[in-house]
């Protein structure tokens, strides 16, 4: 269902303003969403002052600096720090993106960091992605074939066949796209969301996969696939420059075309 306001116990309140560390040369204000499930309190927006001269250039560097220097309880996911693991996806200045590939210079005004929208929050900037991963698993993201592979080689693909899956297979499952989609916000229990549908598309068009029919059957559903209304936020925010919107449109086309 459409929801236009957060539940009363999820609305952020004004939080703590941490004093600037001594000897700041170039100050930058960073506002961060804080929530602790144990406190029983509403989420709050804490304000930090960062010395950008003593900090790396990316938003992730800022978060690491704040955690190391100002507040060690600040909680966020991160791993590769180079846009390949998808762990540090969060909402920065109103747009879902990876903290590690977002340059502080590219952000106007204060840096405002929230967890991915419309997801249950585990703590601070860590969203609960259980449903998201379950949806990914539900599209059976692995090769399904009844024909045994050639005895003396792998299942080979032509260059063209590989090129078709090359981009969709580059998805890092950061969840930026799905959590930017209003349809997903409002029907995440039944709509698979752009990330899972992009994964489904990647296997549907794989020349080695033999379960195309079953895969399309599983998607032919008013909610799982057809809640996509081509809003295109997914393609707009994807930090890997992928195009889930086109993948979904292609799946819809295939469903029509196979009816003959």
């Amino acid at each position: 269902m459409a929801e236009f306001r957060l539940p009363a116990n999820s609305r952020p309140v004004k939080g703590i303003t941490h004093p600037a560390p001594p000897g700041v040369r170039e100050a930058r204000t960073v506002r961060i969403y804080r929530f602790s499930p144990d406190s029983g309190e509403n989420p709050r927006i804490d304000t930090f002052t960062l010395d950008t001269k003593s900090c790396g250039p990316m938003v992730l560097d800022a978060l690491i600096q704040i955690k190391a220097v100002t507040d060690s309880t600040l909680t966020f996911r991160r791993s590769c720090r180079e846009g390949i693991c998808g762990s540090c996806a969060m909402n920065i200045n109103g747009i879902n993106r990876l903290a590690c590939t977002t340059h502080m210079h590219d952000l106007k005004g204060d840096v405002r960091i929230y967890p991915l929208p419309h997801m249950p929050v585990v703590k601070d900037l860590v969203p609960d992605l259980t449903t998201f991963y379950a949806q990914y698993a539900s599209v059976k993201p692995w090769l399904q074939a009844t024909t045994p592979p050639p005895p003396d080689s792998e299942r080979l693909q032509s260059k063209e066949e590989e090129e078709r899956i090359d981009r969709p297979a580059a998805c890092i499952l950061c969840a930026c796209c799905s959590t930017a989609c209003p349809s997903y916000w409002w029907n995440s229990d039944r709509f698979l969301g752009p990330a899972a549908l992009l994964a489904a598309y990647r296997w549907i068009i794989d020349s080695r996969d033999e379960a195309t029919g079953e895969r399309l059957d599983a998607l032919e559903d008013p909610f799982r696939l057809y809640r996509c209304h081509t809003i295109m936020n997914c393609t707009d925010v994807c930090p890997k420059d992928l195009n889930p919107a086109r993948a979904i449109a292609e799946i819809k086309k295939m469903l029509v075309e196979r009816q003959g």
Binding site: D236, D241, A249
Partner: peptide
């Protein structure tokens, strides 16, 4: 525009 999208055209970020 939606009908054009349904044919699979115009779905690149810049095009949209």
């Amino acid at each position: 525009r939606h009908l054009v999208w349904d044919t699979g055209r115009g779905l690149e970020r810049a095009q949209s």
